[in-house]
Design a protein around this nucleic acid. Structure first.
Ligand SMILES: NC(=O)c1ccc[n+]([C@@H]2O[C@H](COP(=O)([O-])OP(=O)(O)OC[C@H]3O[C@@H](n4cnc5c(N)ncnc54)[C@H](O)[C@@H]3O)[C@@H](O)[C@H]2O)c1
Ligand SMILES: NC(=O)c1ccc[n+]([C@@H]2O[C@H](COP(=O)([O-])OP(=O)(O)OC[C@H]3O[C@@H](n4cnc5c(N)ncnc54)[C@H](O)[C@@H]3O)[C@@H](O)[C@H]2O)c1
Lengths: 240, 240
DNA sequence: TATAATTTGTTATATAATTCACAATTATAC
DNA sequence: GTATAATTGTGAATTATATAACAAATTATA
């Protein structure tokens, strides 16, 4: 089984590679990709291993064919349609970004329970009543659902999504959804993330203050610090 | 050093505990918390260990004092102010949720470069020009920044944030930011997350299809499946 | 008061993810 | 052609995270 993190990074690699391809570069090496994404070259090579794709020693990877290889791995052969439930503040932002008729993967139907919103079109996406979820999911053959509704409504809508055929859920509500083992859920809990960032911001600040209090003699105690540095590591900071 | 995941879960625990407290429950056991969040009881106990907080055997944790203990750990003694750069679709949604004068942790200033937005108030938050970032960050003593601007602008604003004093960054733009080691960054890459969910939705679907093709005899081969099940594990599905 | 039942705190174990290190491979310089 | 330099692919080592297991602690009960 492929690691979840690898799947996510493959998506990042593809985005970077498309940019690079647009700039006219035809090959790229693992340490270049690594530098752009601030990860280790070995990580890049390991991830690409999962594709079964091979680069060329001393040359690197062919940008075009690596993009194709990632796409073959990540994408469905047919167009994938996602549905979104909850056209509020967050849902609207998601529609602005992910609604689209022509993309390979896009939100193609929205749902809300607010009568004011039902029947209207937001960022090119029709908003239906939640009662239409089973029907529309069936018609679109959608297996991807996004939840952007209040916490107390989330499990109910989640269950409805699953009985309608949804098999992957991106959940923004602050509730850990209960799903059968044949459904994948990704929880994006922005409140928790926000609090985590705040916590580590303080941690960083404290570390910095402590460090600046160290007696000067300690700052010179880096004997051997730069000894035995591997080539890879030497290279990684060239662009700094 | 405390694991990042633990910090994030502590935030979840607190939210659940506050709910539970509001419902009048005074104590809670690790397996109850675990059940609500669909994690293992050992995980809950292990996380609470980092707080230095102790529960009572055979009783559990005192809800009120556990909330206090988490808050003491997670929160700053003083109010924490975050700044947001980019009042577009996503930034607006974030303001709707995290702007607030009275909360312990909140967005208290927004920035944009669009003259149409500068000077206006969004969800209770004044929008300033990006040139004012150093000044406002200094005044608010803010060390937390949120980036919700296009990719090509992100690194520039990131650098400005850091020189202004920001030490924790929540980045929504699809760019891996380069920061010094004394700055914490959390990348929320919604496009990559969306693609990951789509990928695993298909994986789930495929697994399901394969399983349903198995000859019936295999489905009865669960000999010994329920033997040697630990008490903890037996309990965990009671509510299903 | 002793005993049984239960839950915590924590050590040990298992699993997962990342990074190292180097043989194998290819391009380039001479 | 051969030597040199560089980069890949991957097994092994390391690090991080999650789970299991159980002694110690506490309550409830006989
Ligand atoms: N906006 C943010 O930045 C943010 C941050 C953190 C968490 N969240 C979470 O994301 C979710 C959505 O946030 P939001 O800011 O967009 O909220 P919102 O109140 O702006 O929008 C919620 C939308 O869901 C609709 N809705 C409610 N119940 C529904 C139901 N049963 N079926 C269909 N539609 C229903 C409402 O009509 C409304 O349009 C919430 O759970 C919130 O906690 C949002
Ligand atoms: N909306 C989403 O759901 C979503 C999904 C995935 C990724 N993102 C990413 O989040 C970021 C914001 O997305 P959005 O949908 O809100 O975009 P948007 O275009 O709606 O808003 C961007 C805002 O940033 C402002 N801006 C641009 N350059 C600036 C600068 N240098 N300084 C200050 N302000 C500046 C613009 O004036 C605008 O108000 C983008 O990087 C986008 O790729 C958004």
């Amino acid at each position: 089984m492929i690691p979840e993190n690898t799947v996510e990074r493959l998506s990042l690699y593809r985005r970077v590679l498309q940019q690079i391809w647009a700039e006219g570069k035809e090959t790229i090496m693992s340490h270049e990709l690594a530098q752009i994404l601030h990860i280790k070259p070995a990580q890049v090579r390991r991830d690409i291993m999962y594709l079964g794709y091979s680069g060329i020693p001393n040359i690197g990877y062919k940008v075009k064919s690596l993009i194709e290889s990632i796409s073959q791995f990540l994408d469905s052969t047919s167009q994938q349609s996602a549905i979104l439930v909850g056209v509020g503040h967050l849902g609207m932002a998601l529609l602005a970004n992910f609604s689209g008729r022509w993309r390979q993967l896009a939100i193609r139907a929205a749902f809300d329970r607010d009568p004011e919103k039902i029947g209207r079109v937001f960022h090119g996406c029709v908003c239906y009543s939640v009662e239409d979820i089973p029907k529309v999911v069936g018609e679109l053959k959608s297996i991807i659902g996004i939840i952007a509704i209040p916490a107390d409504q989330a499990q109910k809508i989640c269950d409805l999504m699953i009985t309608s055929g949804i098999r992957g859920i991106l959940n923004f509500s602050p509730v850990r959804l209960k799903v059968p083992e044949y459904v994948y859920v990704e929880h994006v809990d922005l409140s928790a993330t926000f609090e985590k960032v705040a916590f580590f911001a303080r941690t960083m600040k404290k570390l910095e203050e402590e460090k600046s209090k160290l007696p000067p003699i300690l700052e010179n105690c880096s004997d051997g610090y730069n000894q035995n540095v591997k080539e890879e590591n030497l290279r990684k900071d060239v662009s700094v």
